[in-house]
Amino acid sequence: MAHILIIDDDEDFILATEAILKAAGHSVASANDSKEGLEKVKSEDPDLIILDIMMDSIYEGFSVTTTLRGTPEYMDYRDIPVLMVSAVKKITGERFDIPEQAQIAASDAFLDKPFSAEELNSKVNQLLAS
């Protein structure tokens, strides 16, 4: 069983996701924005991060992966798999859809909000196994 960090500005999403993950036997920590999220990456050293893309700004989630994957400070954490989630898949006028952008931003997987417990568990297991 794994330790999972959820970074999301929506408390209800955290509550729901946490319940599903705990039912599957995982332990969960959470953060409400990218800054707190990056701090918790260090203090919690999770096995997996579930990261909301749209928080205060449209692409706030991407700043987490940029820091995580690209700065020396996070060298020890750069290989933690990241599952990005978003309630929005398209933004008018943008060249790439959100799931494509998530790929570009080095996520390891993407889930549409809302997701079923089954979808979540299968993605989480897949990422933890790899």
């Binding site: 999403f13 729901a16 996701t17 309630a87 809302p114 997701f115």
Partner: peptide, 23 residues
Amino acid sequence: THQMRSPLSAVRQLMEVVINQSL
């Protein structure tokens, strides 16, 4: 629609906890 979608998604996600009988 985005404004409506966010809270609805959250409600749906909470319902998933019930359906999944996570608690």
